[in-house]
Design a protein around this nucleic acid. Structure first.
Lengths: 353, 353
DNA sequence: CTTAGTTTCGTTTGCGCACACGAAGATATC
DNA sequence: GATATCTTCGTGTGCGCAAACGAAACTAAG
């Protein structure tokens, strides 16, 4: 029992040749409707499942996957993401998968457009991207769809019917979690701030999801709490410092959530100078500076978005689609990982990631 | 470039036949030492890596993996673990892997021994087990070693030189994390308790690791804090309730860590009756009752040990060893996952697990 | 020198699938 | 009725590896 059914078995049962069964399975015609029905019937009844090993063996194809991603040199978060791509490169190299990355500038939409154009000129078999810029990404997706290039997105989702899969986190829940972690059921009235520290232009879409979740949390907690939302510009240093100093001198301030992974260190530095005074600080991602401030107790929790693994899995989705011809789920959601001083090591040493 | 090197290529380079190369690779003799050297040289230089697909295809072997695990009907934690085994069964069925579980009774060492004996009489190709009982497990390992049956353990580690791989968490760090989560840097003096709620006999080894971590945490925090350690017996209900009531009526009590996944609900129930009064409660695992008390705010955090995934990965390690003949790492460490009200859903919905 | 045994090696087959190739039969065209 | 065109289908080959098989070449025994 349990013996695997092979194409050969189907052929015998349907009294046709393996070639015919193959034609039915791959839907490429040249089959009399009578035979077609017979084979289809038996495929159904037996619940035939192709042997993935054999299927993938014979096929000596080379696959070009193009990754349209933020420049890893500009940002540690995206550097980690790039590590995931490298890891995927190694993982799938033996199956003839090649990954080429087309970096774009986080501060410039036009570089996204340019990189996208260059990417498409190389006629890749599939595309992975982090759709930071809404308009530009949408237009890029349309081109992919027209060229019938399957694509997967990571980091933040942008609805598109041609999208093969989204790999990432639920950002609304992420905002709720951030709120919870700076609040921790403290019943005393107080002020809680959500901070977006941008580089230059701000890509509001996915940060606003976090903000919605953040606000929803405090609304559900009664009206003892004041919520402040601040948009700060990374490049205007003095304005930024002034605004932050203002915020920190607010005696009712109880906690801050910094939504952008890079912003955390700036806020941390200031808190370190002025003294923590019981203000809880929660930020994103396992960047070197963030780890430093987590260890020294300035940052209370980090929420890990695991950009490395997102990229790795994103490529995995494409490989499953292209190479193994599996159906891939439209969403691949990551858990919202809470990192504290005491479980940090377990994450850094984990074989599970 | 990048082209994969095949046995055929090695053969040509070494001026021998593929058969000879194959003999060298599999170390099964009948090769002149001269040829052997030549082939070995080229294997080294080219860094030959066999094609796993092809290797696994041809091999029509059936593998019997036996799982010696606590009875899933007695305990939800182990029921989840059993789900992982089922998942692995489905995952690897097409490669001829069969998993048979031999359940033993959590409360009775003798059932472990009996199940182990029955297991060995079926001459499995590999074994997965959760070595709950130190003595009995050690003796079981010796038998496996003698019979040359590779084995992997999950949940808690027991040193053994023949052990193929340990899959689980660092329990010392886990205790530290538990301490941190009930403390949360609260500078006020107070009492913090660690509770082990046993079924009957207690299997001290792995719980004591958690306790060590717990105590180490508070020792590192200065001497403002009093640590209480309690062993409670599940089956003596009244004694248990009395001891717990005592503990909870201690006005200086600030937090409790319950190390056994089942114990959490008992403590929760009592706290629910007496009122939480700011006592922080941290427990283990995503059991139904625990989720209930997490949602209702009695439990503040859960630490997820992910028994389901541990079992799944444990089988994966064995499959990698048996089927794909990969080297498997001696340790496969899971991260210490912190679950709160607001990231719970992301874990339950996660595709990543 | 012959026969039997040993060592060493090359050839071949099969794993399950995908796909190319070409054959046979049916239909159409002149 | 001969030739061309389609439709439908079976056969055969290769993917890379493992392992069976059997052929040499060489050694030992009688």
């Amino acid at each position: 029992m349990g013996k695997k059914i092979r194409i050969k078995d189907i052929a015998k049962l349907a009294q046709v040749s393996v070639g015919t069964v193959d034609r039915v399975i791959h839907n490429r015609g040249e089959v009399a409707s009578e035979s077609y029905q017979k084979v289809m019937d038996i495929l159904q009844k037996t619940g035939y499942q192709p042997n993935l090993l054999a299927r993938t063996l014979g096929s000596n194809k080379e696959f070009k996957i193009a990754a349209l991603m933020p420049n890893p040199l500009q940002d540690e978060y995206w550097a980690q993401s790039n590590e995931g791509l490298k890891q995927a490169q190694v993982e799938w190299a033996e199956y003839g998968v090649h990954i080429k990355t087309f970096p774009f500038d986080l501060y410039g939409k036009e570089t996204f457009v340019a990189a996208a154009k260059e990417l498409l000129s190389t006629t890749p078999d599939a595309v992975l991207t982090a759709p930071i810029f809404y308009q530009e990404a949408t237009s890029f997706f349309e081109q992919c769809e027209k060229l019938k290039i399957p694509f997967v997105v990571v980091n933040n989702n942008i609805e598109n019917q041609a999208l093969l899969s989204f790999v990432g986190q639920d950002l609304y829940q992420s905002g709720q979690l951030g709120a919870e972690l700076i609040h921790l059921n403290n019943p005393e009235p107080g002020t809680y701030a959500i901070l977006h520290v941008y580089d230059d232009v701000h890509n509001s879409i996915h940060l606003s999801e976090k903000e919605k979740g953040f606000k929803a949390y405090f609304e559900s907690q009664g009206n003892n709490f004041k919520v402040v939302s601040l948009d700060l510009n990374y490049t205007h240093e003095t304005t930024l410092e002034n605004e932050l100093t203002d915020l920190l001198s607010n005696a009712t301030l109880k906690g801050i959530l910094v939504t952008t992974s890079k912003g955390a260190s700036i806020v941390s530095k200031l808190i370190e100078q002025k003294g923590k005074n019981g203000v809880r600080l929660v930020a994103y991602d396992l960047l070197q500076e963030n780890l430093h401030y987590l260890k020294s107790g300035i940052i209370d929790f980090l929420i890990n978005q695991n950009s490395k693994r997102q990229a790795f899995i994103g490529i995995g989705q494409l490989v499953n689609h292209l190479l193994f011809k599996k159906n891939v789920a439209a969403q691949y959601l990551f858990p919202l990982e809470i990192i504290s001083r005491k479980n940090l090591k377990s994450y850094l040493n984990s074989d599970y990631h």
